[in-house]
Amino acid sequence: MIEVKGIHKNFGRLEVLKGIDFHVAEREVVCVIGPSGSGKSTLLRCINQLETVQQGHIFIDGVEVTNPKTDINALRQQVGMVFQLFNLFPHKTTLENITMAPIILKGMPKEQAEEIAIGLLRKVGLPDKDHVYPAQLSGGQKQRVAIARALAMHPKVMLFDEPTSSLDPEMVGEVLSVMKDLAHEGMTMVVVTHEMGFAREVGHRVIFMDEGIIMEEGSPVNIFDNPQNSRTQSFLSKVL
């Protein structure tokens, strides 16, 4: 579903990604872990072209994202993204946050979009929060609305950029459980995360990144219980 081939990315003189290759199969959940500054968020943002790469190619469902001729807006409609800081639209209610993109981009009638949105709110466990503004929600609730907003476009892939890193500890669980449900439904997911428990339990594959390269990659069991790379070992010894 996602194919990343030899990408390099630098911000000015700082090289953040130094040749990344990986792929994500359909219905696969890939968790990307690693220390801060290792380039994992940048990698995720390159996949939907919030960052452009200097070198290399990225394909989503056979379409080259990195080709300037690709209609990136149409492609992004198929790639949902969830941000660390939620980025809900504060001037819109939760329902409007979810219906906005389908109405504007797909020309969906308002009633139909709202019906879908209410279904999604139920799915993320917030059925009674439809007419509430984001400021009135807790962090965990905001992030669940953000997931619903991304799902409203019926994406083929979901990208999660540290979705629980800015949450209070007691709210992490509610967001992870929504993500777990999504994974069980067969959604293709790339999750940049510091939640090792989630990566181990839900991830089909774990990628360990450091200093802009993929140091080690494998099944959760291999990475967590039997890491081969010394960097992976020292990172895991600090976080586990």
């Binding site: 939907n48 919030l50 807006n73 149409a74 492609l75 992004r76 409609q77 790639v79 949902g80 993204m81 941000f83 800081l85 980025n87 809900l88 639209f89 906005m100 993109a101 504007i104 981009l105 907003r149 991304a150 476009m153």
Partner: peptide
Amino acid sequence: RGQMEAARSLGMNGSQ
């Protein structure tokens, strides 16, 4: 900045 990124990641173009 996150607002623009969220809007663009949903598939809106710059003027939308």
